[in-house]
Design a protein around this nucleic acid. Sequence first.
DNA 1: CTACCGATATTCT
DNA 2: GAATATCGGTAGA
Length: 201
Amino acid sequence: MSDWPDLLGPVEEVAPRLLGAVLRHGPVAVRLVEVEAYGGSDDPGSHAFRGPTPRSSIMFGQAGRLYCYLSYGMHVCLNVVVGHEGEAGAVLLRAGEVVDGHDEVRTRRPGARERDLARGPALLSRALGIDLASNGADLASGPVRLERRASTDTAYAAGPRVGLRGAADRPWRFWVPGSPQVSAYRRHPRAPDLANQPDVS
DNA sequence: CTACCGATATTCT
DNA sequence: GAATATCGGTAGA
C-alpha cells in the first residue's frame, strides 16, 4: 500500500492524491480525473459546516467510507470520507474516465457522448450504478471499491469549487490537466463577484 | 460555447 | 418558505 494516499491528512492535501485512482462497482470502473475537498466547521461550503445532521454525520466518521447524498432532490453524488474520526472531511468525486464496463455504462446512458459518460458528480454515480443504498460502504472491502492507483504521481491543477455560494473562491477543486472528462466550471448564480466591486445601490 | 428553466430531498429560516 | 456541492432539455450566439 505504499503508494496509496493517506486519507488521514488535511482534506485539501488528500483530495488531489485521489486523482488517478480507480473506483469500481461490479463490471464498471472509473479513473478519477476531478475531485473537490470539503471540510468541517471552517468550510461554509460543506454539508458539515453547521455540525452533524442525519445526512452529514458520516462525514465525521471513519475515513475510507463512502458518503452518498441526494443533490437537488434527485442526483446521487459520491464522496470519500477522509480525516480522523470526530473531524468532518470528505472528497467529492466529480468526474472520471470509464476504464472498464463500457457496455454496461452505455446501456445506462444511451446516446451520451463518450467524454460525458462520467463527466459531473451525478453522472459519475449513474455510470457506476451506485445509489443511496451504498451510503456508508467500506471502500476497502465492500462491493464499491477504491482501487490502488498507478504508481506514478498524477500531475494536477487546482481552482475554485463548482456551484458553491459560500467560500466560492477557496481553491479546493483539483483536476487532471487536459482531461476531456473534467466538467466545465460553473459559478453559483448568487456567489459574490470575484473582484470585490462595490454594490450598485 | 452561453443562458435559462424545471425537478425536488435535506436543511435552515 | 427558500436555498442548495446538479442535470438535461431547449434556445441562441
